[in-house]
Design a protein around this nucleic acid. Structure first.
Lengths: 120, 120
DNA sequence: TCATTATATTAGCATATCACAATAGAGTGA
DNA sequence: TCACTCTATTGTGATATGCTAATATAATGA
């Protein structure tokens, strides 16, 4: 009976997933953007996103070549509020706000702009 | 940086610990009372309490032979609120409210009253 | 002090979790 | 269709978690 709730809490119990949620609180992002901003591999990001989706914290939608993830609007306000308390490095917030959605991944025709890259 | 928060969330990510917190939201309880109400062994309860204590959700204090655990008053209201949404079986709530603190454990001089026992 | 009770700790096992590398699947656009 | 990119899945290994049984520690009271 408590297991369902525990599973939801557990989804928040990983630093990488908290990081992802915090990034998504700035704006929707596609997987490849998250991969650029996070210090883990693409499969790791993918699996974290799956857990967050299953737990009901994010939803995904396709747009062109990318699959975007977004915070679900129906997250309990209490949790949203607690997430807001997580600080986020200025570099990351700036990166997300200054990049056009999807513009960071090397898809044909995408803008190449490494000047603001956080990693590497 | 997110690890500290993740650890706190993780403490909530187990059904037995949620159960414990829910019970403590009714009244303080000693370990042996919790052991009676929970379907796990005494060492398991003890270890869960240690995690909850470390995560800052509960405090403990000694009284006579028993060590009581109590919800900490400084839990973020958002979390307290979410905990309130967990239902609790009437049997357990009744048991806790009808028993005198500490009266259920077989200490010399303690009242023997199995009539309201939940388990066995 | 000694026996008893309450709680904590340790040891050991089964399972879950998280990471990466490798691979598979699905769109896109030429 | 083919080549390329993006994302998901699978396999595997290291570590963490949760449980019980056994043991240790601490307080009580005769």
């Amino acid at each position: 009976m408590y297991e369902d709730w525990a599973e939801r809490w557990r989804a928040l119990g990983d630093p990488t997933r908290l990081h992802i949620l915090r990034l998504l609180s700035i704006r929707d992002a596609c997987v490849c953007e998250l991969v650029e901003l996070l210090p883990v591999s693409q499969p790791a990001v993918s699996q974290h996103l799956r857990k967050l989706k299953y737990a009901g914290f994010v939803r995904d939608y396709r747009e062109k070549s990318w699959i975007f993830y977004a915070l679900r609007p129906d997250i309990p306000p209490a949790i949203t509020q607690l997430l807001q308390e997580l600080s986020i490095p200025d570099t990351e917030a700036t990166w997300l706000r200054s990049h056009q959605v999807g513009a960071s991944c090397s898809v044909p025709g995408a803008v190449e702009d490494d000047s603001l890259k956080v990693s590497e």
